[in-house]
Design a binder for these strands. Structure first.
Lengths: 250, 250
DNA sequence: CCCGCGTTTTGACCCAGATCAAGCAGCCGT
DNA sequence: ACGGCTGCTTGATCTGGGTCAAAACGCGGG
C-alpha cells in the first residue's frame, strides 16, 4: 500500500497518548473488531493532534480541504456565512464528532469551524482515510455510517427549522444536547451551555431575545433551571412532551 | 463473495438500455476515466431498474435499507414526518440524483420518498457499492463526493430556513431549480414545477398561501411569469439580487 | 361534455416572534 | 477594586407570515 511514508515516523512516548487504540473516544470513533495490524494502521492515520484555542478557527469557509477532524475534547460550532453577513450556525460539535465532511464534494470548506472553548482535534488526511478504508471494510462502513448520520442529523434540523415553533425548537435542542452528553458519559440532566444565546438562536432560527425569553419561560414552568450558561433539566419528560405531544405516531 | 449471483443474470437485449455505459446520466452519476472492465462491473452493480408511478413510495421511513437509488428519470420528493403528522419536505430530487443516503447510518430509512411524477430509478445495493468502491478508487471518491454534496446542500437549506425571509427563500428555491435543470440540459428559464404549492411551502418552511402570494408578488414585479405549474423566469438577475443583495462579500 | 375534487388565488384578520430599548450581571485585564 | 465590555434579561411595540374563509380554476373520470 501507499502509506509507507508514515512508517518512518518514530513512535515517541508522547504518541502513546495519541494512539487511537488507547483513546477514550474509541467506541465513538473507531469501528469495533479491528485486529492488531489494523489498529496500528489507524493509529498512524490519525497521528497528528492539534489544539484549537477558544474562538480560533479550525478551518474557514473557502479554504482548501486537507483533512477531516475528529474532536478529542472541547466544543466547536460550524457556521455558514450568507453573502450579506448573516451567520447561520449549522451545528455544535463535541468530542467524538467528525468535522469537515461538507467539504469533500468541492475540496473546499463550505463553513467556518470555530472553537467555543479550548479544544483538541485529531487531524485525519482524507486521502489516507480513503486509502485505508479500501483495505479495512469495517472502517469504510464506519465512515459511510458517520457521513450518513450527518445527513440524517441535517434532516432533523430541517424538520426543526421548517416546522416547529420556538418552544418546540428549544426543547428539542436541549434534549439533543442532553442525549449527546449522556452518550459521552456525562450527566444528561446538568451541563453547561458552551454557546451564547445568540448562537443558540442562530442554530434554531430564532433571535437571541426569543431564546432568552423561552428559557425563562421553561424555568417559570419548572421544566429547567438556568443560570447563565449552567443548565439543569428538571422535567425531562415534560420537555419531551413539548417536542412530540403525547406519543402519537401509530 | 455474494455477487456471483448476479453473474447468472443473462444479458438480454433490453439490458443494453440499462447499462450505465450507455446511459445519458453518465456524467452525472459515474466517475470519469473508468476502463472497460470497471465499466462492466459498474453496469452489473446497477442492473436493476425500477419504475415508480406518480404518488407511489420509492421507500418509506422506518423500513430497512436495501439499496440506494439513482434517479434515471422523473421527479421525487423526500420528506420527514414529525410525530404529530406534520410533514417536512427535505428535498426534491431529479434525474442523476442519488437517494437513500440518510439511511446508511442506521440501516433504516429516515424519510419517505414519493414520486411526484412517473419516474424510473436504478437500484444500487449498498453492500455491492461498498465492495466495488474498494476496488475502484475513483468510484469510492465519487461516492464520497456525492454524500458530501448532500451534506453541503443540507447546510444551504439550513441557511435558507434559519435566516432568510419568505421572498429570499422562494427566490433561492427558483434559482436552485433553474440551475439544476440547466445542469441537465433543460431550459434554465422555463420549466414546470412538479410539486404543489404546499410541498414548496413545506420545503421552505412557509405556508402554501405565502408561497402563492409571494409568487404572485414576483409576477407583479415582472420577475417571473407563472401559470399554474408552468414557470418562466423573466429577470434572473433580479431574483439573484433578492437572495444576495448587490454582490457583497468582499 | 359536465361533474366533482384537489389545487390555487386572494382577501381580512391575528399572533408568534422580531425589533427596539433599557438596564443588569459576569468577567476580563489592569 | 474597578472600569469597560460582552452577554443576558425583560418590557413595549411592530410586523411578516400564519390562519381562516371563500371563490375560481383546472383536470381526470364517468
Amino acid at each position: 500500500m501507499t502509506k509507507t511514508a508514515t512508517r518512518l515516523r518514530v513512535v515517541e512516548v508522547d504518541n502513546l497518548k495519541t494512539a487511537c487504540s488507547t483513546c477514550s473516544l474509541q467506541e465513538l470513533c473507531l469501528p469495533a473488531g479491528l485486529n492488531e495490524a489494523e489498529l496500528k494502521a489507524v493509529d498512524e492515520l490519525v497521528n497528528r493532534r492539534r489544539p484549537v484555542k477558544r474562538s480560533d478557527y479550525l478551518f474557514r469557509a473557502g479554504t482548501a480541504l486537507h483533512s477531516l477532524y475528529a474532536i478529542r475534547s472541547g466544543f466547536l460550532k460550524s457556521s455558514v456565512l450568507h453573502d450579506d453577513g448573516r451567520e447561520q450556525v449549522a451545528g455544535f460539535h463535541m468530542m467524538g464528532d467528525l468535522m469537515g465532511m461538507d467539504a469533500i464534494g468541492t475540496s473546499q470548506h463550505l463553513c467556518d469551524a470555530v472553537a467555543l472553548e479550548d479544544s483538541e482535534v485529531c487531524e485525519i488526511p482524507l486521502k489516507d482515510l480513503e486509502a485505508l478504508s479500501r483495505d479495512i471494510p469495517s472502517l469504510q462502513q464506519h465512515f459511510h455510517r458517520i457521513m450518513s448520520r450527518e445527513i440524517a442529523r441535517d434532516y432533523g434540523v430541517m424538520l426543526l427549522l421548517g416546522s416547529m415553533r420556538a418552544e418546540e425548537r428549544l426543547a428539542a435542542f436541549l434534549l439533543n444536547l442532553s442525549q449527546r452528553f449522556a452518550a459521552r458519559g456525562y450527566s444528561s440532566l446538568e451541563f453547561n451551555l458552551r454557546m451564547t444565546r445568540e448562537e443558540i438562536g442562530s442554530y434554531l432560527g430564532l433571535k437571541l431575545e426569543t431564546v432568552s425569553r423561552t428559557l425563562s419561560g421553561f424555568q417559570a414552568q419548572g421544566l429547567i433551571a438556568v443560570q447563565n450558561k449552567h443548565l439543569r433539566i428538571l422535567k425531562i419528560d415534560a420537555l419531551q412532551e413539548l417536542v412530540s405531544p403525547h406519543g402519537c405516531r401509530g
